[in-house]
């Protein structure tokens, strides 16, 4: 008698449901001409401060809005709202990351056609958000100088899933003896060719270069849309 296990072959992507919704979102964003940028990082890396500064600087030139994920509070949404752009909070409860369905749900009654740029701030977490496509065009991973240069090596999955790295709080770099070259080498090790920006949202240093980059990305994507 054979004791070979009976195997029934199936092939099912466990995250299919999320991926399908994310694809739908991406199509919708493209159709409406909205360029979507998500932000991931560990808690306390300065995501909200960086985003508030970005929104404030973009607001005179673009129609901008933001979604922000947080476990329990609406503090981040209140801070971002000071920039004067529409902001909506996604409270995830105990969930440590955003999923495409949450983004879809919170966009339900928004007219995307009225937006040039939409930012999605993920929950502060360098592990779980890596697995979930949100339909974004560009994923930024933030790394503050106070966290140490080896963060990319400790969390290669999320750094590899991102398109651009932003080093924040550069005004504190000297005080914490942040080693720029090592940080950059570590980023390139886990994501060769990744574009890196160094900014201080506090002093404004480096923000110009980042905003120019975004403007180019947005212009390129709207060209594609209008063709």
């Amino acid at each position: 008698m054979s004791h070979e296990p009976r195997l029934l072959e199936v092939r099912k992507n466990v995250l299919k449901q999320n991926d399908v919704i994310a694809r739908g979102l991406r199509d919708r964003f493209r159709l409406q001409g909205t360029y979507v940028i998500s932000l991931v990082s560990s808690p306390g890396s300065g995501k909200t401060t960086f985003l508030e500064k970005t929104l404030t600087l973009l607001r005179p030139h673009y129609r901008v809005a933001a979604l922000v994920g947080d476990l329990a509070t609406e503090n981040d949404a209140l801070r971002l709202a000071r920039s004067g752009v529409p902001v909506r909070q996604i409270t995830t409860g105990t969930l440590c990351h955003l999923e495409a369905a949450m983004v879809e749900h919170s966009l339900n009654d928004w007219n995307l056609g009225e937006l040039d740029l939409l930012f999605i701030e993920n929950v502060g977490n360098l592990v779980c958000p890596a697995s979930y496509d949100l339909g974004e065009d560009l994923r930024l991973v933030l790394l503050s100088v106070t966290e140490g240069e080896d963060k990319p090596l400790k969390y290669p999955t999320i750094f590899n899933s991102a398109d651009v790295a932003v080093i924040t709080k550069t005004d504190l770099a000297a005080a914490v003896e942040f080693d720029d070259l090592t940080a950059n080498a570590n980023i390139q090790a886990v994501r060769p060719g990744m574009c890196v920006f160094k900014v201080s949202a506090k002093t404004g240093e480096g923000m110009d270069a980042f905003l120019q980059f975004l403007a180019q990305k947005h212009a390129r994507s709207s060209q594609k849309t209008s063709v």
Binding site: R6, L7, L8
Partner: peptide
């Protein structure tokens, strides 16, 4: 992150 097969009870 893919389910490839189900092993069935005999």
């Amino acid at each position: 992150l893919v389910i490839t097969a189900l092993e069935l009870k005999q």
